[in-house]
Design a binder for these strands. Structure first.
Lengths: 326, 326
DNA sequence: TTGTAAGCGTTATCAA
DNA sequence: TTGATAACGCTTACAA
């Protein structure tokens, strides 16, 4: 591995001169600068991140942490983050498991974006600090170094359910996501509130606990079909589960929406093709905005007010128009 | 940031003792060990990766590099890599742009998996070495430190086209991916060979250059529809473009497969929902295998023979059965 | 304009 | 069983 020393030796100068050239310092002669740069090129020198980090400790690098590979829209979030980061001369590294703690707060990265429910609140509280801002995408936290960029779940879910009710649907089932997640709680609350506002009863037996994966929606639908009476509409806390449910219904010869309507949340790629009524989240923008706030915070422009991303309701064929039984 | 020094001071021992404890060395008294571990816990000490890397330079960490966010199956590859890596006590960091060179060969990672056509062959040749094996997923390279794990494109593409021909289709259009990629070349070659073997002519005007993105398939289909005669079947070098093409056809009132059949390659999530005939690549396994070979190579078990992953053809409704005009 | 030298957090060698 | 110290590659005062 060729290092700053090798360059210095070859150029017949000291290491500090090389360092100065590489860091665009002014105090170095033009001729020397050219010579050194040429040699770096020749030896295809790559600065050693570790050495650099250890000494200066202000790397233009941020970290993104996620761990759910079933949620394909995560790629769009990464895309948004990546674009903002590139445009601002930062680098991005992504971690998919607990090891990311090693890269947080060490001198290797100067801030993190977190979208991983396995990451605990108190870990984040510990890692965040004056010199290490964090942006969380999957929860709301009150901490002077942590900013939350979250999807506004309540209003669109409420409105979507109201829309479904307006179309004549009267009885509902619900497939929830992981119960501890803020997203799921908010979506469920909006669902219940919308029902209540319309004097529609909801029984606990119509609640199915899922985990945001397709299979859990599939299973929920299978179980639901065993019961005596199907609800008019099955509301799912996300698209994956809604799609799983639709597949289960179709496999059993039930028609969507004639026999049962289905709604999701996310507007994932598949949602359009499946004709799923859902809430569309602008994920690319979500990543982009998260990166923007993180880098602004890194640059000292402190702002940790919770930012809510607004979403859009999309009615598709999985919800029809139900005639009232009068 | 609490470091090894702080722990040492608090415990009233030297830094080397702390280091020995943290690295499970035998030469330290049980009582001291316990005390030090407790203090690490209390101060929630995190070892500084940079310092560690700088000194020892054998990190149990590998790097994955990709940059195409439109290909949602990349998440499955990452999932496979992540799982293997975790099971083998390695860490994974992911990079989405050129900055990844900084993490390759520096003491920060001990090997890389590359799936990024922007990464050039000679860069890889330069970075790979005795102590830095690389696995490439998107090309075949001959280098004693670089292993290729690639999808076998030729046979399944050939067979799929033969299957389409057997179903009575006789004239073809082709939407290619980025022309420089090995995948695209191989898929196109198989396509042409299959046609030739069946004495079917192919004219250059029926070739459309795309970039693997949905939009380019959409555009190709739009252009195709302007021409006087539609082929029986439009073969696309990947699913995204095939889906774009299907959307364009449908928007213009053409039925798939009655008016024109369409095939893809990848079997992405959407392919099933769209009824697209395609080739299924086991992506999770692809990532898993890549990680396995990389870590084996890191551990000194040198093996750089090209590994070909076999794929499976899936006929769906986008290809029907065409009556012969006799 | 250039060079010398200290120090970042860690591990490793060797002496106590 | 422990501790002192050099070294990893780099940046940065400060001296020349």
């Amino acid at each position: 591995m060729v290092g700053i020393k090798d360059i210095a030796k070859r150029a017949g100068v000291s290491v500090s001169t090389v360092s100065n050239v590489l860091n665009n310092k002014k105090n170095v002669g033009e001729e020397t600068r050219q010579r050194i740069l040429r040699i770096c090129e020749e030896l295809s020198y790559q600065p050693n991140v570790a050495g650099k980090a250890l000494k200066s400790g202000k790397p233009n690098t941020i970290l993104f942490n996620f761990s759910d590979f079933d949620r394909s829209f995560y790629l769009k979030i990464i895309n948004g983050i990546s674009d903002y980061v590139n445009d601002n001369d930062f680098d991005l590294i992504i971690c998919t498991d607990k090891s990311c703690e090693k890269y947080m707060n060490s001198s290797l990265t100067s801030g993190s974006i977190i979208l991983d429910k396995k990451m605990q609140d108190d870990t984040l509280t510990r890692l965040a600090g004056e010199n290490y801002p964090i942006v969380v995408l999957d929860r709301i936290m009150n901490n002077q170094y942590i900013k939350s960029v979250v999807v506004n779940n309540y209003e669109p879910m409420y409105e979507m359910i109201q829309g479904v009710i307006d179309r004549g649907y009267r009885s509902f089932g619900f497939v929830g996501g992981p119960e501890e997640t803020a997203d799921n709680k908010e979506r469920y609350r909006a669902f219940r509130d919308a029902l209540e506002a319309n004097q529609i009863q909801f029984q606990q037996k119509s609640y199915f606990a899922g985990n945001y994966r397709e299979k859990s929606g599939y299973t929920a639908a299978k179980i639901l079909m065993l019961s005596r009476e199907l609800p008019d509409c099955l509301v799912c806390a996300n698209d994956n589960m809604a799609i799983g449910a639709m597949k289960a219904f179709r496999e059993n010869g039930l028609r969507v929406p004639e026999d049962i309507a289905v709604t999701g949340f996310d507007n994932c790629d598949l949602a359009e093709a499946m004709g799923l009524t859902t809430v569309s989240i602008p994920n690319y923008e979500r990543g982009y905005i998260a990166a923007r706030y993180l880098i602004e915070n890194i640059r000292g422009q402190r702002n940790v007010e919770t930012f809510k991303i607004s979403a859009k309701i999309i009615f598709r064929s999985s919800v029809g128009s139900k005639k009232q039984d009068i």
